[in-house]
């Protein structure tokens, strides 16, 4: 079996809360190769950010494994963790709070380089930082500025330059464009795709914008309350989706066509959480197709090559 850049195996992250245990990420398994992008979509609160943060070890996993280049990096610490961090980076949604307001732009990019000890002198680090800022398009005159002097698009470029500073192989992009207007969004997406082509980067791309996820991804994973409910090639997801939640999600994309009324699948039924979840399908309480069989534990099945779905009624309803 060929080695994957990233392999996530049965990853779990549970949080203790007053009402019990929140299964924020529950048994997620997938692989990602160099130069590829996996898009992650799903209901707000379904665990996308937690999944990204747990993979790159900003939080400890409750259970499960993460392999990077075939090596188990789930529980590394100290020096080893620092090495792993260099390979796995994150770009946050919010370009406002994720940059230190008291730090000049250039320093923000140089700091992780100096911390990593990859560069022996400040001068070397500075040269590299300037190369990266040329690459992502942060104007020369802004490099001595502070974050508040930059608009959202430029801040997001700084966030990307910082993520690139350590020459990573994998970047979690957690809603990197949702605060941006559509023109700057287009610039940033083009930039991310160019960097992927030239550096072979792999991305996990979290977004609520389904046209963006379709544009940038290879495969797309759909999550619902901590679990993966469907995963397949991006075109397959839009043309031949199988899970009822995926159908509801895609039906709710607000159309820019002002004359065609939307045919949204409205979700009714009890709103549940992933706190002490029952064993059956977590979407069942709101699913228009649910039967008693859905109260049994569901398994993720590969119904067509590389098309995984977790719904016992997938064949019947499609």
């Amino acid at each position: 079996m060929a080695e994957h850049l990233l392999e996530v195996k049965n990853l779990k992250k549970y949080f203790k809360v007053p009402a019990g245990e929140n299964h924020a990420v529950d048994d997620i398994t997938f692989t990602l190769d160099a130069g590829k992008t996996i898009g992650v979509v799903g209901e707000s609160g379904c665990g996308k950010s937690t999944l990204g943060r747990t993979i790159i070890h900003l939080q400890n996993a409750t259970d499960g494994k993460v392999f990077l280049n075939g090596e188990d990096v789930t529980n590394v610490s100290g020096h080893k963790l620092r090495q792993v961090r260099e390979k796995m980076q994150i770009v946050f949604q919010d370009p406002y709070s994720s940059l230190n307001p008291r730090q000049r732009i250039e320093t923000t990019v140089i700091e992780p380089m100096m911390n990593s000890k990859r560069f022996r002198t400040h001068k070397q680090a500075r040269e590299e930082a300037n190369r990266l800022m040329d690459l992502v398009g942060v104007d020369y005159r802004l490099r001595q500025a502070y974050p508040h002097e930059l608009d959202g698009g430029r801040r997001q470029r700084v966030g990307i330059a910082r993520a690139l500073a350590l020459n990573p192989q994998f970047i979690v992009c957690d809603e990197p464009v949702s605060a941006l207007d559509v023109s700057i969004q287009a610039q940033v997406l083009n930039l991310l795709m160019d960097l992927q082509d030239s550096m072979g980067l792999a991305y996990m791309f979290v977004t609520h914008d389904l046209s963006v996820v379709k544009h940038i991804s290879d495969d797309i994973m759909v999550m619902y309350l901590g679990q993966m409910v469907e995963k397949c090639d991006k075109n397959e997801l839009f043309s031949n989706n199988l899970h009822p939640y995926t159908k509801a999600l895609l039906s709710a994309i607000p159309s820019t066509d002002i004359f065609s009324p939307m045919q949204r699948v409205e979700l009714k039924g009890e709103i549940t959480s992933a706190i002490n979840p029952k064993p059956g399908c977590r979407f069942a309480p709101r699913c228009p197709y649910a039967t008693d069989a859905c109260l049994e534990p569901q398994t993720l099945r590969e119904l067509a090559p590389n098309h995984f779905v977790s719904c016992c009624r997938a064949e019947e309803i499609n």
């Binding site: 937690t50 609520h208 709103i271 959480s273 706190i275």
Partner: peptide, 25 residues
């Protein structure tokens, strides 16, 4: 809470325990 899609058993939690979109709701 239900109308914005959050289960009422989460009312006793603090903002840091909510995802970005849950806080927005």
């Amino acid at each position: 809470f239900e109308m914005v899609g959050i289960a009422p058993n989460r009312m006793v939690e603090y903002p840091f325990e909510f995802s970005g979109g849950m806080k927005q709701r």
